[in-house]
Design a protein around this nucleic acid. Structure first.
Lengths: 154, 154
DNA sequence: ACTGAAAGATAGTAGGC
DNA sequence: GCCTACTATCTTTCAGT
């Protein structure tokens, strides 16, 4: 079993990133391969970890997540212990959709989804700000989303 | 047709956000409803826009997107024309996965996915920096991803 | 609104090229 | 590695409650 990827695999990944509800039959037509071939390719792409998961993307406004905040966090120090503790605790908060350790002036960027500014404030005061070793938190809020993609162009 | 959502709908959304390859049969078992009911609920959730799309999430490192940058962009002015032009042009770049207009010191945050620092540099010099009306670009790079979720806890 | 069952479509498997 | 053909399973529809 080789670990290289060809144009058929790329085509499958390209299409499934945009719409994973496409059937093998539809893929086989678009990519000029038999259904069985498509089936086997998808099995391999999952097995080899190219496809991590298939998920439903929801309209966040419909489920009352109207406010997205990006919060840049600076910690007091950067010992293994402090970093691990912060990560462990902050990733437990359901409001935190994303926690990324970054280069630059701040240590982490958090993407935080809440119902509105009031619930963000509540999260900030009663959850985020209670964590140990935080020096600074700088928050920005999303005004509009001209582009938001999960699909990598490949 | 009512636009309210009940516990069965919530259960479906909760499960499909995590794994949209679940069959109606599996959902019907987990939620104690008939297959036909699940089927009808999902149809409605799509029709009403709760479920925007079903997508495959890829492992970006497997497809050679090893570097993620967050770039904060400040524009020269904030006329309708300048904002629209910037949005229109920056969203066309395939490297730009996300373009968010923000409150605060900067106007936009971009999430940029490239192969490595060299290809980021190429993008920056030959694409992003060529756009009109940019005052400042401040970029940070992802070191690690302690948490990265597409599923809202509901 | 929910259900069970029928009909049609798709996924998954196996054997041959 | 790709295909056709087969079987199991799933989706989709619909009459009945």
């Amino acid at each position: 079993m080789q670990n290289e990827i060809d144009n058929v695999d790329l085509g499958i990944l390209r299409l499934l990133q945009k719409d994973a509800s496409l059937t093998n039959k539809e893929l086989s037509f678009k990519l000029n391969k038999s259904i069985a071939t498509i089936h086997e390719r998808i099995r391999r792409l999952k097995e080899q970890g190219y496809i991590k998961k298939i998920v439903a993307i929801l309209d966040r406004k419909k489920i009352d997540r109207n406010l997205i905040s990006f919060s840049q966090v600076l910690l007091n120090d950067h010992t293994q212990k402090t970093l691990n503790e912060f990560e462990e605790q902050v990733t437990k908060f359901p409001e935190v959709m994303e926690c990324l350790q970054m280069t630059g002036a701040y240590d982490f960027i958090l993407r935080i989804a809440t119902k509105d500014m009031e619930s963000y404030h509540d999260f900030y005061r009663n959850k985020l700000a209670t964590l140990a070793n935080i020096t600074t938190v700088q928050s920005f809020f999303v005004l509009s989303e001209p582009k938001s993609e999960t699909a990598y162009p490949i």
